[in-house]
Design a binder for these strands. Sequence first.
DNA 1: GTCTATAGGGAGATAGAC
DNA 2: GTCTATCTCCCTATAGAC
Lengths: 225, 225
Amino acid sequence: MTKKLAKSAISQKRVLDAAARIFRDYGYAGTTMRAIADEADLKAGSIYYHYKSKDDLISAVLDIGIRAVTDNVDKALKALPETATGRDRIEAAIRAHLSAIIEVGDYTLATRRALGQVPEAIRARNTRMRDTYGSVWQEILADAHDRGEFRTTANLTLARLFILGALNWTIEWFKPGGRSIDDVAREFASVVLDGLSGNGGSAAMAEELSPPAKAKRSSPRIRAV
Amino acid sequence: MTKKLAKSAISQKRVLDAAARIFRDYGYAGTTMRAIADEADLKAGSIYYHYKSKDDLISAVLDIGIRAVTDNVDKALKALPETATGRDRIEAAIRAHLSAIIEVGDYTLATRRALGQVPEAIRARNTRMRDTYGSVWQEILADAHDRGEFRTTANLTLARLFILGALNWTIEWFKPGGRSIDDVAREFASVVLDGLSGNGGSAAMAEELSPPAKAKRSSPRIRAV
DNA sequence: GTCTATAGGGAGATAGAC
DNA sequence: GTCTATCTCCCTATAGAC
């Protein structure tokens, strides 16, 4: 899968990775070509050999961010057997979405920070790609519903917005080295499909195994949301 | 509740509202004092009579964004009767969170766009307020769990991150004039508590009332996520 | 309170040497 | 391919008139 790259392509990739990190930290307007150049270990003027403008760079970063997700989810769905249930497909899509956004975390976070500030034409193109991804999810949910796996009162559009919101937010708090992506994906799927009060069988990582009781809880150290 | 404001306070509020809209559209670095001044109908130099710097302004905007949410959720929880169940409290908190972020939408979106780019000292202070709000939610969930309303396998920390992620994302797609906040809140609570496959009784707004069938679905017009 | 004018510093992008 | 040097423009913040 890893291709041998020409020397020029290596530099180009180094600049792109550096750009993702700087856009991630400073947003679109706050990012300077000089800062990207420093991060990539060359001088500002040299970037223009690889990319013709700052807009060209942000555009490439944004595309990688969404493409990683759509490609990974497509792949995961195609890898499922014919006999997969709606639940199987939802679990697979959640896992694929999470691993993709975390795998290219710099690009994902750069997108989150910069997308709203980017020139209209660039944003519109990226937004179209995201809309297409949204309809993939709408189809997944509609399919599970058609199979009779959902309660009839379920609102699929709101469910999709709810699921994708929660998934996209994950990048804000997930830190490699803590919980595994699989564990997070399993628990998310469990909440979405069975709910917190339901009695789903696939839940993992019970936090409190002791029986319900008026336990004294110290104020927990919480990550900002 | 609406106080009469001195002339100076009126101008100050006009500048602050203008700043929220401009920060929302251009992020922290992309916002210029000139743009805020234009939006507030005065000249750039005059802003400095009300706020001593750009950092002073963004700081005020960020504080309003989180305070609106914590205050509204606190108020909603306190308004509940003694007999309220864990489910009641979760539903109330979801509704209060949603109405607050939408009510001060410009400030909410400005926070989303700018928080990551703001000088460290300002971000740290705002992040502490957000952490405190996170522990309020952790308590709400722990309480419902202690009452025996959740399945024992539920992971409360992940559930909290999941719920708050989905709620915070709502500002990206919610448009006043469409669905009501109450409807969205009800459906979100229904997914979180009962799941999509559960048979909760509180679900509203069924999208497809016809029985499951292999209906032909046209590719839906989807909002970007 | 709001204005005009401006000081002082950086920004994106280009040209041409190496 | 990468460098240095530089053009031109726009930024935050201040000073002082009204």
